[in-house]
Computed example of a mutant assay.
Amino acid sequence: MLARIFPDRFVPVLLATILIASLLPVRGEAVPVAQGVSTAAIVLLFFLNGVRLPRDEVLHGVRNWKLQGAGLAFCFGGMALLGVVAQAATAPFLPATLALGFLFLGILPSTVQSATASSSMAGGNVAASVVAAALLNLTGVIASPLLFAALAGNAGAISGAAALRIALILLLPFVAGQAAQRWLRPWVLRHRELATFMDRTSIAIAVYVAFSAAVVGGIWTRLDGREIGITFAAVAALLALAFAAAWALGGLLRLRRPDRVTLLFAGAQKSIAVGAPLAATLFPPAIAGVVLVPILVYHMAQLILSAWIAPFLNRPQEV
């Protein structure tokens, strides 16, 4: 039963992280220590992503320009537009920072492991999924902050200090990981479970620290049941639109079915692995926790939805 409800074990980990942060948030003198640990975890996360993402496969895979171009356009164009619409639609009903979280969700890159695994279960083009995930995340490290700054106006203005933090905490470790691929990638591939555990622990730490600050700042006293309900309804609508639009785009482009499946998951899924560190880099802790709420809900919902629809898509098609 639990496996059907939570097909990805990271979903209950995120739920537990939010619960612990709500009950036992970091306070007082422990805050600087927790933020230091979170920063170190983010550096490790992006270093491992740099080691893992196959640079050679990306260069080879971009030859499928129709699929990869559609993935880039939908992930950073179509989804960014949906994020803008969702922010505008929820702004009259939600606190400004929470509504801003929908725009933040829209500019993030796709997941890596989840999109590839979902594509595999659905009979998609697995090789192209690996390339798409790598290409989207390589692009997202630079494009996501710039897109957010361009679309969010004054709320998304990136100061010199924030730009330097992005370069030092996100971009530099990623580039270092890419440079170290020759020596470290074989080890990471041999120890996939350990690398995945380190990835998810890093994400959980970043979410815990950010959400702790939001709890201390009074997120649960500022949000009533109506606003929480609106947030969940808006995420559900955005999720449905994203998956439907990505599938429709693949049809309009007349992609082969395996490529269409790849575009569906690479385009419509969004990455908390980039979202949590980027929010922690762009915003003060109390604001970061609130901005993360839509992507936290979306991330958990997309994993459940993908696990439900992947077997359906893999059924033999009538000729």
Rank of each mutant, 00 (worst) to 15 (best):
A248C: 03
S129R: 07
W220L: 15
A167F: 15
A157R: 12
A246E: 01
A133H: 03
L189V: 06
I228L: 13
A242S: 05
I142R: 07
L239N: 01
R226Y: 11
Y208G: 10
S212N: 11
S202L: 08
I166A: 08
A128L: 05
R165Y: 01
W183Q: 03
L168M: 14
V207Q: 09
L253P: 00
L168Q: 14
A155Q: 13
T196L: 10
G218Q: 13
G160H: 04
L252N: 00
N154T: 14
T231S: 11
W220N: 09
A167H: 02
S159F: 07
A248L: 08
L239S: 00
A236L: 11
N154D: 15
R222A: 14
L151C: 13
T231W: 06
V215W: 11
G225I: 10
W187R: 00
F232G: 07
A152V: 11
A155F: 12
A176R: 04
A213W: 15
L184I: 14
A180R: 00
V235S: 01
I166H: 11
L189D: 12
E227H: 09
F197N: 05
L151I: 11
L164C: 10
L249R: 01
A236N: 05
E193N: 04
S159M: 06
I230V: 15
R190F: 00
V215N: 12
S144Y: 02
